[in-house]
Simulated assay, not measured.
Amino acid sequence: MGEQITYAQAGVSTAEGARAVDAIKGLVGATYRHEVVGDIGGFGGLFSIAAAKEMEEPLLVSGTDGVGTKLKVAQMLGKHTSVGIDLVAMCANDILATGAEPLFFLDYVAVGKLSAEQMHDIVAGIADGCKQAGASLIGGEMAEHPGVMDPDDYDLSGFCVGLVDKPRMLGPQNVHVGDVLLGLESSGLHSNGYSLARKVLVEGKSADELKAPVEKLGGKSVLEALLIPTRIYVKPVLDVLRSLPGAVHSLAHITGGGITENLNRALPSNMNAQVQLGSWVVPPIVEYTCEAANLSETERLKTFNMGIGAVLVVDASTEYDVKAALDAAGEKVHNIGRVVSGSGEVEYVRA
């Protein structure tokens, strides 16, 4: 027999994996809703859906997503917590577009070389995002990939499941001509367009340049501004859906493709969203990136969220009540347009 070669010698540390699990146990447990059954460490996460019995026609809604190349910014800055919030936000905001309440979340973290401390930071962000979304983190996977990924590299994926009663579901089927478009402000670029943002703002720059304060970014550095986490809209929007039933007809989560290629998904095929440009303020990092890329207005609107992270299509008679409720919850809300007859597209006019 030849010399024994262990798993550790192949580059995978099961001991470090066990240490990482110990490091995140408290973080995971802090996200648990009362419906969670069992604890971390099982082969599957268990969650009671007894609440569905009270619904007329309960539907499970699922969503999966990642953070993309924004992770490279986190790795450059050495700050790994906020990207976990991004991961939850991308999934939870997506299922919110149906009116669903997020119930539980699972994550997948692939790393080149496992570090318990780094894993703690990543999962701390995921747990924070789950708390913001009201979802339980009931499972996940930490996968070490030596020889496939660089030691300092990692990637994140997430999966979220929620619940909605079909008669209360949001969607294009509820939209009417004359409905108002209420835009919820984004915190920045959120988690989309980072391949372009990195190309024009990061590539070819020194570490000192990237970490230096920039006046146009309100004193933040480029890396700090790029790392601002995605806003999670779940709790304030669900509160509106419960307190003002029927007021919100449809919802669009503005992600990759910008307003142009996401708001149309909340419309029926015989209506357009007429968006008034200039009716909201574009965040500094979004404007800064667009200027650096020399993007035309058309390209901007189909690449970045331009400062609007979600759009609610609202019955005109309830506009002020919905806006007041969202304002009270801490959201910054703008009337950005209305629904008109058309062909299921987004059209732009000047405010």
Rank of each mutant, 00 (worst) to 15 (best):
S221R: 03
G256Q: 13
N272H: 11
H249K: 09
T260F: 02
H249D: 05
S250I: 01
K235W: 04
V234A: 03
V214Y: 04
S250V: 03
L267W: 00
L227I: 08
V222H: 00
V286G: 09
G257F: 10
A252E: 02
R242I: 02
E203P: 09
L196N: 07
V237S: 02
K211R: 15
Q274R: 15
I259A: 12
P284G: 06
V240Y: 11
L227F: 02
G246N: 01
L201T: 06
P284Y: 06
A247D: 00
K205M: 13
E215M: 10
A266F: 08
A247R: 00
K205W: 06
V214H: 09
L223G: 00
A225W: 00
N264F: 02
R242N: 11
L241M: 13
S269W: 09
V237G: 02
T289V: 05
L196R: 14
R231F: 03
V248R: 02
P245H: 12
P213H: 12
S243Q: 14
V237R: 08
L201I: 04
S195M: 13
P213L: 07
G218M: 15
T255D: 11
S243R: 14
T230Q: 10
A212V: 05
A273V: 03
L226W: 07
P229H: 05
P229D: 09
H253L: 05
S195A: 14
G278S: 13
N262L: 04
S206E: 08
H253K: 14
G218K: 12
T289A: 06
V248I: 13
T255G: 08
W280E: 08
L201R: 02
N264T: 12
K211E: 04
L223N: 00
G204I: 09
G258K: 01
E203A: 13
V282Q: 03
R231P: 01
A273R: 02
T230Y: 07
T289P: 03
G204V: 11
T289R: 03
L201F: 03
C290Y: 01
Y288V: 08
G193L: 02
E291Y: 03
P213Q: 08
S250R: 04
K216M: 12
L277S: 11
L227G: 07
K216I: 08
L267Y: 00
V234T: 12
V214N: 10
L196A: 10
E261I: 05
D239H: 08
V222R: 00
T260K: 09
A252T: 00
H249V: 01
P229E: 06
Q274N: 11
Y194W: 08
A197G: 11
G257Y: 09
L251S: 06
R198D: 05
E203V: 15
Y233C: 07
V237T: 13
